[in-house]
C-alpha cells in the first residue's frame, strides 16, 4: 500500500459515536453505511489526520505497546485498507 499512497485522511463528515462495551459507531453520510470499531480501531482512525501512513503505523504499533512489529504493522495496514474500502478515509 505504501508504494502507492503516502498519507491518510479521514473522509469529511464522518460521524463517530460512542456505543456500549467500548465500541464506536462510524457513520458515513455519503454511503449511509454504519461501521463498528473497537477502542483501538477508533484510536487508529483518529490518527488519520493527513499524516503519513508510515507514521500512523508506527504510532498505531505504540498503541499496541510494540515497536514496529511486522505482524502488528500489517494488522494496522489491513485496518487502514478496510477503512479506505468503506470510504471512511482517503489516501493520497
Amino acid at each position: 500500500m505504501n508504494e502507492f499512497f503516502l498519507s491518510v485522511l479521514k473522509t469529511e463528515k464522518i460521524r463517530c459515536r460512542a456505543e456500549d462495551q467500548g465500541n464506536y459507531l462510524l457513520y458515513n453520510p455519503l454511503t449511509d453505511q454504519l461501521h463498528l470499531v473497537d477502542e483501538r480501531g477508533k484510536q487508529i482512525f483518529d490518527l488519520c489526520d493527513g499524516r503519513a501512513i508510515d507514521d500512523v503505523v508506527r504510532e498505531g504499533c505504540a498503541l499496541f505497546g510494540v515497536d514496529s512489529s511486522p505482524a502488528v504493522s500489517q494488522q494496522i495496514l489491513d485496518f487502514l485498507c478496510a477503512l479506505k474500502k468503506r470510504h471512511l478515509v482517503v489516501m493520497h
Binding site: 459515536r17 456505543e19 456500549d20 462495551q21 457513520y27 454504519l34 463498528l36
Partner: peptide, 8 residues
Amino acid sequence: MKLTTPLY
C-alpha cells in the same frame, strides 16, 4: 450491532 441511541 447494539446501539445506545437511535441513528435517526
